[in-house]
């Protein structure tokens, strides 16, 4: 009885998931040898072969680390820019109103729009990619930081002031912790976005990394390698997502909103 329950709750979804993946591979193989055999779709074996071959190449690992590293550097820079500016704007009512219209305009514009300008000025370089990541990620982090600072209970800041805390101390010990759930959420959403922008910068702007490899595979007509690269990008994307969720949960375990979820 117990084991049957357990099977129902944990193993069965996994078993179904495995069946689903195998089914997808079967359909893919069938398409590749059957209806779509003349097209660029490689067989499963060809794609996996290309993947295995790629995993043995030094250049591939270099590209992967360049992509991951560039995305992380860009994300780190975005966090610094976004949080610093966000606190500055969030604590000053005048600045908040002055920037609201501009931020409101910039928020829905994706970084790919600015890509031609950045590529023009900086060329197909890692710096170009980093600038593009900052453009894409700093603004959402900034906007969330402003919202978080605004959300801090005024009673808390007043209390801190009446205890004789200075401005810097209030910022560091009251405002920043109070705004941290907003900031953390923004960072969790921005981490996979940073990876996406890095790949886009490589694919469309020629910045070094996996995006560029994908573009080269496309122009060379090497479709097996293209599919292998897509699989790698999917895995990398999942790693970024899982890592950012884990970091958020760990960094905010003390916060009341997270404690509630666990209870």
């Amino acid at each position: 009885m117990m084991t049957a329950q357990r099977w129902r709750h944990s193993a069965r979804p996994t078993a179904y998931g495995v069946i689903g993946v195998l089914g997808l591979l079967l359909v893919w193989q069938w398409l590749a040898v059957g209806p779509l055999s003349g097209t660029s779709l490689p067989t499963v074996a060809e794609a996996i072969g290309a993947l295995v071959q790629m995993l043995g190449e030094g250049g591939f690992w270099e590209d992967t680390s360049v992509t991951a590293g560039t995305a992380l550097i860009g994300l780190a820079a975005s966090i610094v820019v976004g949080v610093v500016l966000g606190i500055l704007i969030g604590t000053s009512q005048l600045l908040r109103f002055a920037t609201s219209a501009v931020l409101e305009f910039l928020k829905p514009i994706p970084p790919i729009v600015i890509l031609p300008i950045v590529v023009l000025v900086l060329g197909p370089t890692t710096e170009m990619t980093i600038v593009l990541v900052i453009i894409g990620c700093a603004i959402p982090i900034l906007i969330q930081t402003v919202a978080g600072v605004f959300d801090v209970d005024p009673v808390r800041t007043d209390t801190a002031r009446s205890y004789g805390m200075g401005r810097a101390e209030i910022l560091g010990r009251v405002v920043l912790p109070g705004a941290s759930p907003f900031i953390a959420t923004a960072i969790r959403v921005s981490a996979p976005a940073a990876l996406v922008v890095t790949v886009v910068a490589g694919l469309l702007g020629g910045g070094p990394g996996l995006g560029q490899s994908l573009y080269q595979a496309q122009t060379a007509g090497d479709s097996a390698r293209m599919y292998a690269l897509i699989i790698v990008l999917g895995v990398l994307g999942m790693v970024f997502q899982a890592a950012s969720q884990l970091v958020e949960a760990k960094a905010l375990h003390w916060h009341e909103s997270k404690r509630e979820v666990q209870a």
């Binding site: 996406v196 469309l204 994908l214 897509i230 990398l236």
Partner: peptide, 25 residues
């Protein structure tokens, strides 16, 4: 259960990276 793993994998791929696949196809 059948489709969830596939969906989570495909949605982790940067969306723009799928464009080259459709171009060659």
């Amino acid at each position: 259960w059948l489709l969830e793993p596939i969906i989570h994998f495909v949605r982790s791929i940067p969306p723009v990276a799928l464009v080259p696949i459709f171009i060659t196809m």
